[in-house]
């Protein structure tokens, strides 16, 4: 035990933090996409595991072909749009249940992604040959973080504006009450497709940025992305609500989605530093997300349970002669 503690190097943790922050910001963008479907549309969209890798693959392959990295990101976004479109159409046009529609697109994208990557499971760019503004190169890491913070702020502002427009309101109404939305003339199927496309666009954009950051794209880079996205959304909500209580405005809610992503990656860095095997991270993430999803349910149940009534009746002696002394 003492040996283990002495083997931990505090400065190594500090050195790893900026990388964690940068990755967290990138996943924060991905989480904003998840927020759009999971929280606004009430649709757990599993497409993202595929579209995240699609975004990465498109970006890396285009850069390898000499495309400007920023232009490549726009194409990544467009690729994500079409992935979301596919899920949306499977769901609305063919009546396939939401989760299954996402899984089908995700599975199909696996083959598409491998094709994009030229039949290999991963492709790397020669980072010495292209100028990347977003890079994990330690020398430029602080610049990368600044760029990402600014980019996240811009994206949050755009999302805040969009969800406040007539169209954004219609998307939110569709998620909350589809029957009422149709009665108010909202094309609920259209809104679902639109939101799914935009959400996957953001997810693929994040995939493209991550690929640039690490210098390669991998067919597996999106595995479990939905859970990481949910983790960021939920961690952000829990922390935001504990700080601002009920006064949390919508723009803060969006901001805390990204904060949730950063915190998730800082915890990730910490856990790795504590010498947890990297392969266990997915299990750990799944447990954390399950716990956070379970807490509000269990809290409600504790307030409102048969067991509690039975216990209290026993205690109070409301049934004559059966009470405790």
């Amino acid at each position: 035990m003492t040996g283990y503690i002495f083997s931990l190097d505090g400065t190594a943790l500090l050195r790893a933090c900026p990388g964690g922050v940068a990755q967290g910001l990138i996943w924060g963008i991905m989480a904003l996409g998840v927020f759009m479907t999971f929280r606004m549309l009430n649709f757990a969209d599993l497409t993202v595991d595929g579209s995240f890798a699609t975004g990465g693959a498109v970006c890396i392959m285009l850069i390898m072909k000499g495309c400007n990295p920023e232009v490549a990101l726009i194409v990544s976004f467009a690729a994500g749009l079409s992935a979301g479109l596919a899920t949306g159409l499977l769901h609305t046009l063919f009546g396939i249940p939401d989760i299954l529609a996402g899984i089908l697109t995700q599975l199909g994208l696996w083959s598409v992604n491998l094709k994009l990557l030229g039949g290999k499971s991963n492709q790397a760019i020669n980072v010495n040959l292209v100028t990347l503004h977003i890079t994990s190169n330690a020398r430029y890491l602080s610049r990368t973080i600044i760029i990402m913070v600014v980019f996240c702020a811009i994206l949050i502002s755009i999302l805040y504006w969009y969800l406040g427009t007539e169209q954004g309101s219609a998307i939110r109404a569709t998620g909350i009450n589809p029957k009422m939305s149709r009665a108010q003339g909202i094309n609920t199927d259209g809104m679902k497709v639109l939101a799914l496309a935009l959400s996957n666009g953001m997810v693929a954009l994040a995939g493209g940025i991550l690929a640039q950051f690490q210098g390669f794209a991998d067919a597996n880079m999106g595995r479990g992305a939905i859970v990481i996205g949910l983790a960021a959304v939920i961690i952000g909500e829990v922390i935001g609500e504990s700080i601002f209580k009920k006064g949390m405005s919508f723009i803060l809610r969006l901001g805390f989605v990204v904060v949730g992503g950063v915190i998730y990656y800082l915890v990730y860095v910490l856990v790795l530093w504590l010498k947890f095997p990297a392969n266990d991270m997915k299990l750990l993430t799944a447990i954390v997300v399950a716990a956070f999803l379970a807490v509000p349910y269990l809290k409600e149940k504790k307030k409102n349970s048969f067991h509690k009534v039975a216990r209290e009746n026993k205690k109070s002696g409301i049934i004559s002669g059966k009470g405790e002394e």
Partner: peptide, 12 residues
């Protein structure tokens, strides 16, 4: 806005 196109103008 019932019966109108949902545009990118402010919701309210």
């Amino acid at each position: 806005r019932r019966g109108e196109q949902r545009t990118l103008r402010w919701g309210v």
